[in-house]
């Protein structure tokens, strides 16, 4: 489990947390290039390298959200450039359906994004990450782990009542 402690719930100290799944051959290399070229982009994206955007199981995206991501970004090779031929098309199709499903589950569209960024487009990595960070900042925290804890308070309440009853019976 990703620790949620570093994310303070107090509004002013909150920073958007974006999980970025980048394809090894294009977007990850581009992020590297951005680093080498000393392009400054916001530190809010946690980059996870995968071999191909086609490797990104929709479960990864939901898992990231459920463990505290405020946004999820997927980066892959441009159409026609995937090293595994069809991986990025598979990714695109999954993303299109996942977007619909996330919307139905109440998660704002801007929290989930797919971008094609080739190895030479370091500048584009910077633009996309900065843009998304600002958009997610505007939306505020998604805070799924906090929501889960909040939902489950309705159980704790009864737990306490039952225990209280138990005490009087024992006494």
């Amino acid at each position: 489990m990703v620790s949620t402690n570093e994310q303070s719930t107090s509004k002013n100290s909150w920073e958007p947390r974006i999980v970025a799944f980048f394809c090894n051959w294009c977007t990850y290399t581009a992020a590297d290039l951005a680093g080498v070229s000393r392009l400054r982009y916001s530190p809010n994206a946690r980059i996870i390298r995968v071999m191909c955007s086609g490797r990104i199981d929709p479960q990864f995206v939901l898992d990231a959200f459920s463990k505290g991501a405020d946004g999820v970004l997927i980066g892959g090779c441009h159409p026609g450039d995937c090293h595994y031929i069809e991986g990025n098309y598979k990714a695109l199709r999954r993303v299109q359906l996942l977007k619909r499903m996330l919307k139905d589950m109440g998660i704002e569209e801007k929290r989930f994004r797919l971008e094609w960024i080739s190895a030479s487009e370091g500048e584009r990595v910077k633009t996309v990450i900065n843009e998304m960070t600002e958009q997610v900042r505007e939306l505020g925290p998604l805070g799924m782990p906090e929501r889960f804890a909040d939902w489950d308070k309705e159980l704790d309440i009864l737990e306490k009542e039952i225990n209280r009853k138990g005490e009087t019976v024992d006494a």
Binding site: Q59, Y89, K90, R93, Q96, L97, M101
Partner: peptide
Amino acid sequence: DQGAKILSALASQVEAKEEKEIDKIL
């Protein structure tokens, strides 16, 4: 996550490469 799994299996085999075409099928 059962839903994400079937979503993945179905969507990845949609016979289209353009966003609009994909959306139409989905």
